[in-house]
Computed example of a mutant assay.
Amino acid sequence: MKIATTLFLKIAVVLMAIPVLALCIFLVPELGKVAVELVPSYPSLKYIVSIIFYASSIPFYFALYQAFQLLRYIDRNKAFSELSVKSLKKIKYCAIIISILHVLALPLFYLFAEMDDAPGVIFVGMLVPFASMVIAVFAAVLQRLLQEAVEIKSENDLVV
Rank of each mutant, 00 (worst) to 15 (best):
L145G: 11
P43R: 01
F123T: 05
A12D: 05
F53S: 06
L88D: 04
Q143M: 08
K86T: 04
L21N: 08
L101F: 05
M126G: 14
A12N: 06
L142E: 05
M115E: 15
P43H: 02
F60I: 07
L145R: 10
V39L: 11
P43G: 01
L88W: 04
I122S: 05
Y61W: 00
T5D: 08
V34D: 13
K10I: 01
R72V: 07
L145E: 09
L127T: 13
A17I: 01
L21D: 08
V20R: 05
M16E: 06
A149V: 12
F80W: 09
I97Y: 02
A35R: 00
K86E: 08
L23W: 08
L83T: 03
L45E: 07
L106D: 14
K46H: 05
S154F: 08
M16G: 09
S41T: 11
V134A: 05
M133D: 03
V134M: 04
T6M: 00
A35F: 05
D157R: 02
V13I: 13
I91H: 07
L108V: 13
S41R: 11
P119W: 06
T5R: 09
Y93V: 10
Y65F: 12
V159N: 08
I135D: 02
I48T: 09
V103Q: 12
I91Y: 08
A79M: 03
Y65K: 10
M133W: 04
N77D: 06
V20N: 04
C94I: 09
H102C: 10
A67C: 06
I48K: 05
K10Q: 02
V103N: 10
E37D: 14
N156T: 07
V39A: 10
S44V: 12
I97L: 05
V103A: 12
K33A: 13
F8Q: 09
A35N: 03
Y54F: 00
A105T: 06
A149G: 13
E114P: 14
I135Q: 02
A95S: 11
L104S: 08
I96C: 07
I97D: 00
S99G: 09
L31R: 15
V159K: 08
C94W: 04
P40N: 01
Q147P: 15
F112S: 14
L31F: 15
E30T: 12
N77R: 07
L108K: 08
G32T: 10
A22W: 14
V103L: 14
V103W: 11
A79F: 03
I97T: 01
L45S: 07
L23A: 09
L45T: 06
I48Q: 09
Q147L: 15
I58C: 01
I11H: 12
M1H: 06
I11A: 10
